[in-house]
């Protein structure tokens, strides 16, 4: 396997990969930089890269204009709540399919995934009516339930692929050792599947955090998460690039950092265990 790789080759690879990497990352970098500029500097021609008067003013203005903390908490509650609720329902379901498969297991899995393909707009109005009926409109609870439901198929699927890698004999051993079903799942399966469960939690947290159909359409002032916070900047009003950048940075930074720290688990999770 080992073959001498010329330094020249390696330098070319490095330059090319870094070039493309920076190009892909540039919009985010530029947004972060712009958030520290004044509005005038933000639209300066030629664009200012690093040499401008760094300022935190935009962040202050954004915070003053709309209460960032409130949106942030809503996002954390909704994404976190829907993910936790989902995983509690998904673990038993995935256990069933992975360890007690039947002829219908695969059909059920595919059907679950197919519910994700249902166009959300097709059911927007009924959901809207139901939400009014049950007083869930613009509530954290309502949004948590909806996001849990739209991510549930992905959770079940991901956990299923992880669980299938755990040898059934170990669970049988637990059964022989006198474990009830509850102990079997709680003390044997779950600890063994921690890496898989962690990446399932992470991916779904990110998906819920970034979800931008239901969060925009089912919330107003009370339960609006960061997606809605940022959408309020969609109609331009004078010079607003620096403020928009500051708000954008505030909306994406938490998840960006979380994502970077956990990218290893994420990559595995993203592939649905289908690509090793």
């Amino acid at each position: 396997m080992a073959r001498a790789i010329t330094n020249e080759r390696k330098i070319i690879n490095t330059v090319a990969a870094w070039g493309i990497g920076l190009l892909i990352f540039f919009p985010i970098l530029w947004t972060i930089l712009t958030s520290f500029k004044t509005e005038a500097q933000a639209i300066n021609d030629p664009p200012l890269f690093l040499f401008f008067d760094w300022t935190l003013e935009n962040y202050a203005v954004v915070q003053e204009r709309s209460n960032y903390g409130r949106f942030l908490w809503n996002s954390i509650f909704i994404a976190g709540g829907s993910t936790l609720l989902g995983v509690i329902i998904a673990i038993p379901a995935a256990w069933s399919m992975a360890f007690v498969p039947s002829k219908r297991t695969k059909d059920i899995l595919l059907w679950m995934l197919s519910t994700k393909m249902l166009p959300a707009v097709g059911v927007l109005y009924p959901i809207y009516l139901l939400f009014i009926q049950f007083g869930l409109l613009d509530s954290i609870l309502g949004l948590t339930i909806v996001l849990m439901l739209i991510n549930l198929p992905i959770m079940v699927w991901m956990l299923y692929t992880y669980f299938r890698e755990i040898p059934g004999e170990i669970l049988e051993a637990a059964r022989m050792d006198g474990a009830t079903l509850r102990s079997e799942i709680l003390y044997v399966l779950t600890p063994m599947a921690i890496p898989g469960i962690a990446s399932t939690l992470l991916l779904n947290f990110i998906l819920a955090w970034n979800e931008a159909f239901w969060t925009l359409n089912l919330t107003a002032a009370q339960a609006a998460p960061l997606t809605a916070f940022i959408a309020s900047y969609s109609s331009p009003e004078g010079l607003f690039y620096a403020k928009l950048s500051a708000a954008s940075t505030m909306a994406i930074l938490p998840i960006l950092i979380l994502g970077w720290f956990s990218q290893k688990q994420l990559v595995r999770g993203l592939t649905f265990g289908a690509v090793k």
Binding site: P167, E169, I170, E172, A173, A174, V188, P191, M192
Partner: peptide
């Protein structure tokens, strides 16, 4: 068990 089935 054949694979010992220890809890890892």
């Amino acid at each position: 068990f054949q694979s010992y089935a220890l809890y890892p």
